[in-house]
Design a protein around this nucleic acid. Structure first.
Length: 273
DNA sequence: CTTATTCCCTGATTGC
DNA sequence: TGCAATCAGGGAATAA
């Protein structure tokens, strides 16, 4: 489940490997059910990439953006089980590889996605895809004022609001739970009930959690691997996610699990108020 | 406008 | 041992 730290880890690894490279040949799973892509026709999609040079690797929220030398932008979202693994020709292939990108240095970028929930686009303006995303937490875009306006007068649980990419870009289920624990706030609190001091605590917790996880190369509870095919290490450092029944690292109370907004939610019932 | 629910997709896990 | 039901969750779509 790549969230911001996982996608940022992949971006940093891919940048030196892909910048300046030309896509000499591309292949996209052609048979149904297909990998969702835009344009939807696999041949048309491939033709927009072949022969183009990748100028850089950028990230917006959980989206990877690859600006092309013809002005278009290749956009990838890994969703739940997507992975972009770069390796020399002869890389590990299995039945879950859904797309291949051969580069002009002989290397190969494999797109692997067990559940085929990931998506790709080639668009003239990336705003078509990422235009509605909220502020970036790690680029000083997420100010206290921005977070306050996202939560104010909202009755939905703050956990559900943190998962809404239009309010804050990049948080998923793991880091929403972790940030709320770090801030000492219950995931069940209505968004609008947070005081200005609590909003600021939450903002700082979001930044700290995302920076910490990025420093650990992301979290690998499930299938996540980085661009080198390696697992992240942050699952060794989580405080509440998937730790129900185990002691809260802050107060020792057993971590609870419930459902918020249809998502499993983990929190300490004693010190998250 | 808001909030809640369903769907996509398949391997791993759980229940009987 | 086998098979079916459930779970994992990001985001779009739909319903209320």
């Amino acid at each position: 489940m790549p969230e911001l730290p996982e996608v940022e880890t992949i971006r940093r690894q891919l940048l030196p490997l892909l910048a300046g490279r030309t896509v000499v040949r591309a292949w996209l799973l052609p048979e149904a059910p297909r990998l969702p892509a835009h344009p939807p026709d696999a041949a048309a999609f491939v033709s927009l990439l072949e022969g183009r040079r990748l100028l850089s690797v950028e990230r917006r929220g959980k989206y990877l953006l690859f600006p092309l030398n013809d002005g278009n932008v290749w956009v990838v979202h890994l969703r739940m089980t997507g992975a972009l693994v770069h390796s020399a020709a002869g890389a590990t292939e299995d039945r879950f590889v859904r797309a291949r990108f051969h580069l002009d240095d002989g290397s190969l970028l494999l797109y692997r996605d067990v559940r085929k929930l990931g998506r790709m686009w080639v668009v003239g303006d990336p705003q078509q895809v990422v235009g509605k995303l909220g502020p970036e937490p790690l680029c000083e875009g997420l100010t206290a004022e921005a977070l306050r306006s996202a939560l104010t007068r909202r009755r939905a649980p703050v956990k559900a609001l943190l998962l809404d990419q239009r309010l804050v870009a990049g948080l998923g289920n793991i880091y929403a739970d972790e940030a709320l624990h770090e801030a000492g706030l219950s995931p069940l609190r209505p968004g609008g009930s947070l005081s200005p001091a609590e909003v600021e605590r939450l903002r700082q917790a979001i930044v700290r959690v995302l920076e910490g996880a990025t420093g650990h190369g992301g979290t690998s509870f499930f299938a996540y691997v980085d661009a080198r095919g390696q697992r992240g290490r942050h699952q060794l450092h989580v405080r509440v996610y998937r730790r129900q029944g185990q002691p809260c690292p802050r107060c020792g109370t057993a971590v609870a699990r419930t459902r918020v907004g249809g998502r499993s939610t983990h929190y300490c019932p004693a010190c998250q108020l």
